[in-house]
Design a protein around this nucleic acid. Structure first.
Ligand SMILES: [Mn+2]
Ligand SMILES: [Mn+2]
Ligand SMILES: [Zn+2]
Ligand SMILES: [Zn+2]
Lengths: 147, 147
DNA sequence: TTGATTTTGAAAATCATTTTCAATTATATA
DNA sequence: TATATAATTGAAAATGATTTTCAAAATCAA
């Protein structure tokens, strides 16, 4: 099951034994089967909906764990809330964020990535990671706008 | 004095009269004479250093005011704290952020901006604003690294 | 089983920022 | 100049997402 991936990855990096647990299994399961961003609240509500007990502490702890071992990617958009996405489902990408409906569109643009490296080189800067977000109106919201 | 620019701009947009005030003058004065980002704490400390009384409420209020009428630009980097910069001192640009020493380098890269527009068009998305930050090590920190 | 260690959740803490509200101040007008 | 009106201020409380604390519950190795 999914917890094994976690255990292996976790123990190899943090050398602390992991005990298996029902709560963590739930969270990891939700996580592994998502292929897009989700907020902490979204995950929390989903588990609550199945009438299962869970606390925010545990949710945050587990998500941070996944993040610390590189299984989860974190993004913080304009609204300031942390969202997570499984790193194994997609490689690096950037985001278009609709300020009306909140939709998040992912995109890759290798030409931009290349130019970013060029900018860094020009400043003798070593880039570890970056974020790029374009905010505005998505096609649907623009359509509604016109009525 | 500087408050006049503010008053004119503010009243034309928010049609509420602005009374002049010593505290606001201090903040606006600091703001207008900076040509790079500063944190709220930085400004607050600076005014305190001149042994002048000021409260964070007033600092936040005034900075938000400058922001709301477009005189200030806000950026929130990885650390989650809001920084401000005077909009009249420079046009749009993006940032390199050193994760070691906190240095912030500004850059413009028109080729990237053009490609961003292209991405947006491809998704029928209308971009209002964007942010792009490259995080890593600056040249100086890299040098120290090697010792 | 036992004993050691990890996990959990409720409640408290954090921390930047905002809000509240009563007191102070500026400004327009009489 | 005095007064009325409206804006400004700051202390303290509120906010809200996230983290921490800590005692109780669960897991696991021997
Ligand atoms: Mn994404
Ligand atoms: Mn800048
Ligand atoms: Zn939309
Ligand atoms: Zn540096």
């Amino acid at each position: 099951m999914e917890q094994d991936i976690l255990k292996k990855s976790y123990q190899s990096k943090l050398k602390k034994p992991l005990k298996s647990s029902v709560k963590r299994a739930l969270i990891v399961n939700y996580f592994m089967n998502r292929n897009r961003h989700f907020s902490v609240e979204e995950l929390y509500d989903e588990i609550k909906k199945m009438s299962l007990k869970i606390s925010y502490s545990t949710v945050y702890r587990t998500l941070n764990l996944l993040s610390s071992i590189g299984l989860a990617r974190e993004c913080v958009f304009k609204d300031g809330m942390t969202r997570f996405e499984p790193a194994h489902r997609s490689r690096h990408h950037d985001h278009l964020v609709c300020e009306r409906c909140g939709k998040i569109i992912e995109f890759e643009e290798p030409k931009i990535e290349k130019l970013q490296k060029e900018v860094a080189r020009r400043h003798k800067f070593t880039v570890d990671w970056h974020r790029m977000e374009l905010y505005g109106l998505c096609a649907e919201c623009k359509k509604k706008e016109k009525l």
